[in-house]
Design a protein around this nucleic acid. Structure first.
Lengths: 163, 163
DNA sequence: TTAATTGCAAAAGATTTGCGGGGTT
DNA sequence: AACCCCGCAAATCTTTTGCAATTAA
């Protein structure tokens, strides 16, 4: 058989191959879109981005692929309210999301203290923690008129899919 | 007019009256079902329980009522996974949910430390916390063979709606 | 009386699926 | 060649809504 060079394969594309998934053209495209996404797109948005790269892709396939990758642990499904599921690549270490209730922007953050606390709480109740889910809904703090405007938050601000 | 005694009104029924909602027969029934619920039923389940008390109720009305009560702050909508929204009466103080991944049972718990931490985190990111959401998914800890079996957890164990 | 509420069934929005054709291993 | 995957459209599932009839205030 022909040697299949992974050289041009996206990060998620490589993960698919590692897990022995059959790499079709559309999977490669979707994997690339996901690899390049820095936000938390929903299926509609993934579909738009994928079609931009290759028009021979249907929403059904995006749904099927996103589902498959979630089962394989490559993707994680999120619910930020708004009816549609949103996705992001699985990353090392837990991180959480703060949703700006006015703009819909999503800010990611880590907090080891919180993670540890979750384990302690489950423990206290007689359980082993399998996973947990945390979302903060918040409003940007108004800048006090007398102080110099606050600089941008250190955490990355990632917007969601289009409205 | 005839004096309308609240005496036989359910707890949530009284809250509806306080907020000036028009009390129809179906609302009274749904309010009663909600007042008596000790779990986190979804709309289907609420509908079943309501119909048991009065067959002249439609699912549409349950959907409409549950939505109205949520807007009025009387109910809170929950998402424990599984596709359908689930509801519980708003209570004093924040409490959270641990879902047993094997049985679907829901355990409620409070944790002031966690609540405080959430405010601190939002603050740190430059936001005012509006609300937050936390769910633990966990598995009951196996009883070590050498020790006497653990007694029931102190927290109340509430199951969800039927599967 | 008057405006709000209800039932019914149709509509909507998101996601899944059956099927015949096509691509990957 | 064998089996998996794709596109399409129809099907599901949950929740919402238009409309005419009914009811609380």
């Amino acid at each position: 058989m022909v040697a299949s060079g992974d050289a041009m394969e996206s990060r998620i594309g490589r993960m698919c191959i590692e897990r022995g998934l059959k790499m079709t053209g559309q999977r490669r495209v979707i994997a690339r879109v996901l690899s390049e996404a820095e936000d938390h797109p929903d299926v509609e948005e993934l579909y738009r981005r994928a079609v931009d790269l290759d028009s021979r892709i249907s929403v059904a396939t995006v749904y099927r692929t996103v589902r498959l990758l979630e089962e394989k642990g490559i993707l994680e499904r999120r619910d930020f309210g708004g009816g549609r599921a949103r996705y992001e690549a699985t990353e090392e270490g837990d991180h959480y999301h703060l949703i700006d209730v006015d703009t819909g922007k999503v800010v990611e953050f880590e907090d080891a203290e919180h993670t540890a606390l979750m384990h302690r709480i489950a423990e206290r109740l007689g359980f082993d923690l399998v996973s947990h889910r945390l979302e903060l809904f918040a409003r940007r703090k108004p800048t006090p008129p007398d102080e110099k405007p606050a600089r941008a938050a250190r955490a990355a601000s990632k917007d969601g899919s289009r409205r």
